[in-house]
C-alpha cells in the first residue's frame, strides 16, 4: 500500500536533523527566543537571530565558545541588522537571568555588572565567529512571513496553526 512507502520518521536516522550541531542549533533557537521575548524584541529580530544560529552551525559547526554565548552573539547581531539595537549589557543581563533555574530568577536590573562583564569577551568572540561564518552577508529572509503567507494560502485555521508561525 501507499502507506508502506512513507518512511517511518521516528525510526529512521535523519542525517541532517540528528546531527549534533543541528540539535545544538535547535536548542539555541529556543534559548534565544526566550531571551528575546523577555526583552520585547519583535518577531523579525528573533527570526533573524535564529537564522544566524542555523547559518553559523551549518557553515562552521565548532564554535570556540559555549553554545549559549554564540546564541547571544547571534541575537546581538540580529538586533543590529534589524535596526532594533539594544545595549549588549542588557542582552547579557537578560540571558543571565534566563539561564537561572525557574525558582531562583532575580530581577534583570539587579544583575551585577561583574557578571555581564565576565560574559562579554566570549560573546564578542562568538560575534566574530558568526561574522566569519556568514561572511558578512547580512541578507535575510524572514521565514515567519513566508509561513504566514503559506498558511493563508493553504487556508489553515488562523487561531492555532497559522498563529504559531508568528510566535
Amino acid at each position: 500500500s501507499s502507506g508502506a512507502a512513507v518512511p517511518q520518521s521516528n525510526s529512521e536516522h535523519h542525517e541532517l536533523l540528528d546531527h549534533p550541531a543541528m540539535i545544538t542549533a535547535a536548542r539555541s533557537c529556543v534559548f534565544v527566543k526566550e531571551v528575546a521575548r523577555s526583552m520585547g524584541f519583535p518577531a523579525r529580530t528573533i527570526g533573524t537571530a535564529q537564522l544566524l544560529i542555523h547559518r553559523t552551525y551549518i557553515y562552521r559547526s565548532t564554535p570556540p565558545v559555549a553554545s549559549s554565548d554564540l546564541a547571544i552573539a547571534c541575537l546581538f547581531v540580529a538586533a543590529k541588522m534589524e535596526e532594533t539595537i539594544k545595549r549588549l549589557r542588557d542582552i547579557l543581563a537578560h540571558s543571565y537571568v534566563n539561564s537561572l533555574p525557574d525558582g531562583a530568577r532575580i530581577d534583570v536590573q539587579s544583575v551585577p555588572t561583574a557578571v555581564t562583564d565576565k560574559m562579554r569577551p566570549s560573546v564578542l568572540a562568538g560575534e566574530q565567529y558568526v561574522m566569519g561564518a556568514i561572511g558578512f552577508d547580512f541578507r535575510t529572509t524572514h521565514a515567519h512571513l513566508l509561513y504566514v503567507k503559506l498558511a493563508k494560502l493553504a487556508g489553515v485555521p488562523k487561531a492555532n496553526i497559522a498563529a504559531d508561525g508568528w510566535t
Binding site: 546581538f76 549588549l88 562579554r120 568572540a125 560575534e127 558578512f136 547580512f138 541578507r139
Partner: peptide, 20 residues
C-alpha cells in the same frame, strides 16, 4: 587581543547595504 564592543552598527549597516 580581543574585541570589547562588538561590530559597530554603522559598520553593520554599511556592509549590509553596500553588498546589495
Amino acid at each position: 587581543a580581543r574585541p570589547t564592543t562588538g561590530i559597530s552598527q554603522s559598520a553593520c549597516r554599511e556592509i549590509g547595504l553596500c553588498r546589495e
